[in-house]
Amino acid sequence: MDSTVKDSTEQRPLSLDSAIHDLSAYMMVDPRKKYLGTLELAELLGIKHPVIREGADTKPWTLSTDRLIVYGPAGNCSRELSALAVGAKPNKKITPRERQLLSLERSYWQIRGVPWIFFTRELYDPRVSDLLRSAAAWAIDKEAGEESRAIAQAIHRLHQASPLYINLQRMASKLGSMELAQRAFWQSVWEEALSIDMRMGWNLNFPYPLLPLSDFRELNPITMRRSSWS
């Protein structure tokens, strides 16, 4: 939902040994400058590096970050790329060993100048998550087109007190199909042109009033860089 996102990868491996910057695949970096790998960092931090066993032999386990998000420049503010590393757990309760390894992961990104956040379920409203999952099929489907989105936006702004299913019917009447109406509406939400209150959850019988854009963005813990790490 962030138009500046250039790439987003899951389970990004962390280099065991010293290596050039992890963003070298996206931009020019100094090939002479090396950053510590997890083996050296673990030793510095006094953390036992995880290993994998193969019979009687052991070798270092390659750690990974749950998600690495790479951002392109926002408007004309900068030509530089930036990134955000995200560690995630289903809940906030972690064992002492898990905390050690998360500290190692955090340090790995810190020395590379990449912010790291620890993402748990406490950071977001489950009603928002439910709505996003339910609407994703239309939001990431083929482009509805600028004109169709403009029609959907105008109708919803004028009738935001109406239940959403009625507004979708109004859009479908103008656009020729409910399928196009759904794509036009949800793609408008995804690009922040319609900053609806997603805390209503997934219920088309409800109205979806518009929020100030700043409040809409507050619903996204990744955009706001919220973290459960302390």
Rank of each mutant, 00 (worst) to 15 (best):
G176H: 08
L164V: 02
M178W: 04
F185A: 02
F185E: 07
Q182G: 00
N167P: 11
I196D: 06
Q187C: 14
W186R: 10
F185M: 11
S177Q: 01
A193K: 14
M178E: 05
A181T: 01
L164S: 00
Q182R: 00
Q169Y: 14
I196E: 10
P163L: 12
L194G: 07
Q182P: 00
Q187P: 13
L168P: 05
I166A: 13
S173W: 04
S188Y: 05
L164A: 00
R183L: 00
L164T: 05
L164N: 01
L175W: 05
W190F: 09
Q182I: 02
I166S: 13
L168S: 13
M178K: 09
A184G: 02
G176T: 06
S188L: 07
A184R: 06
S188Q: 06
M171D: 12
E179F: 03
N167T: 11
W190H: 10
L180Q: 04
V189G: 01
P163R: 09
L180C: 03
Q187T: 12
A172W: 04
Q187E: 11
Y165S: 07
L164G: 03
K174W: 06
W190K: 06
R183Q: 02
A184C: 04
L168T: 12
A193V: 05
Q187G: 14
L175T: 14
A193M: 11
K174F: 03
S195G: 14
W190Q: 15
W186K: 10
A193L: 15
S188V: 04
I166Q: 07
M178V: 01
S188N: 15
Q169E: 15
E191F: 14
M178R: 06
R170M: 14
M171A: 07
M171E: 07
S188R: 06
Q182W: 02
Q169A: 07
E192F: 06
Q182K: 00
N167L: 15
M178Y: 01
R170W: 09
A181C: 03
